[in-house]
Design a protein around this nucleic acid. Structure first.
Lengths: 197, 197
DNA sequence: GCCCCCTAGTCAGAATGATGACTAATCATA
DNA sequence: TATGATTAGTCATCATTCTGACTAGGGGGC
């Protein structure tokens, strides 16, 4: 049960509505978790029911009213408890890796196409995260921010996300180039589907 | 539905029993997916029911009998279909990142301890993957293997896994050092690697 | 002789996450 | 003056994953 804690942790940086939170989960927060808006709304309801967050209605004229949530003391305690408990090892879980794993036995062309796409997406994500990191830092250089800046948690997770996306990008580019090279050297626009069985 | 395809892709490299597959999912295959043995047994049953793999009983005297599975032509077709279909973007989903995100608001000590642990685990994983990569390569150097070696799919996913673990390790080490430094400068009782509670 | 670990596998059910289909008002654009 | 995008949110249900408990025999160490 960790979407719960991811939402709690995300709410630490300020009051958010479900909608705003959904936006955040598409950029910054997505470094450590991701969820669709519907899941977030649901989780927010549950959290409020359990008294871990409290919401207040904000009436708006030009837009639909919204509910802003903030973490309660009980919520903080829950987070502290979660932070102190053991955590399971992390691992990649990626469709595309599964496809690459099978690339010796299936048509490589669509896999290469997806690697290209992913590389682009990852590059875009890197830029977004760079922007976020700069916004955190303000005038400070990174070394100084890491030593004294605040908040440090979100900055660190962003940094991790940035590295991850960078690595992902580099790997995609390299793998695509490599598979393309192999395909052309094998002299086929449509690679054979049966090589080593 | 991708544990299904992860299992199929893993079975491409040879015949495995459920038990052996479970082992593989703890090391090499874990680069792109992870699952508990129970899930694997279940998935293998389903796959066999759907005719995507076929199993044969192997009688053993000293040990319980086992069933070895291999991918059928229908299974290969399914994989090809899967490889050609679109895939969702990948992202990290990690308990520990959630905890770091919250580290400005909760006690840092247990988080630091977990970062230390994770760093060790990641370093161990890197060594395992290095060994695996060397076994793939045999006498060839990496450049040559990437150009002409076989299989290339598993090698590439291993490479990705290795990079991921390396990055994870480096980040954990850095984050732990940083948080420790901040804690001591704030005059807290310095939590060194010697934590016991 | 006892106990724990390893091989090998099964089952049921709880927890968690994902998806599609809705409502409803405002704003910018063509 | 339509058309579509944006803000804001709800509901029901499906899919997938995770967990604990269980069976069963053999081998190795104390």
């Amino acid at each position: 049960m960790t979407l719960r804690h991811a939402v709690l942790a995300a709410l630490l940086s300020g009051e958010y509505s479900g909608y705003q939170l959904a936006k955040a989960f598409d950029v910054g927060v997505a470094n450590f978790w991701y969820a669709r808006p519907q899941q977030l709304y649901l989780e927010l309801s549950k959290l409020e029911n359990d008294g871990l967050i409290s919401g207040r209605e904000v009436v708006q004229q030009t837009r639909p009213n919204k509910r802003l949530f903030m973490v309660t003391d009980a919520g903080l305690a829950e987070l502290a408890h979660f932070a102190a408990a053991g955590s399971k090892p992390s691992f990649i879980r990626d469709d595309l890796l599964v496809k690459v794993q099978a690339v010796d036995h299936v048509d490589a062309a669509p896999v290469i196409a997806q690697l290209d796409q992913r590389a682009l997406a990852a590059a875009a994500k890197v830029e977004i995260l760079d922007k976020l990191l700069r916004r955190f830092r303000g005038d400070l250089d990174e070394e100084t921010y890491l030593r004294d800046g605040s908040p440090i948690g979100p900055y660190l997770t962003c940094l991790r996300g940035r590295r991850f996306e960078q690595e992902h990008h580099d790997w995609c580019v390299r793998a695509a180039a490599l598979l393309r090279d192999r395909a052309t050297r094998n002299g086929d626009p449509a690679p054979t589907s049966d090589q080593s069985r």
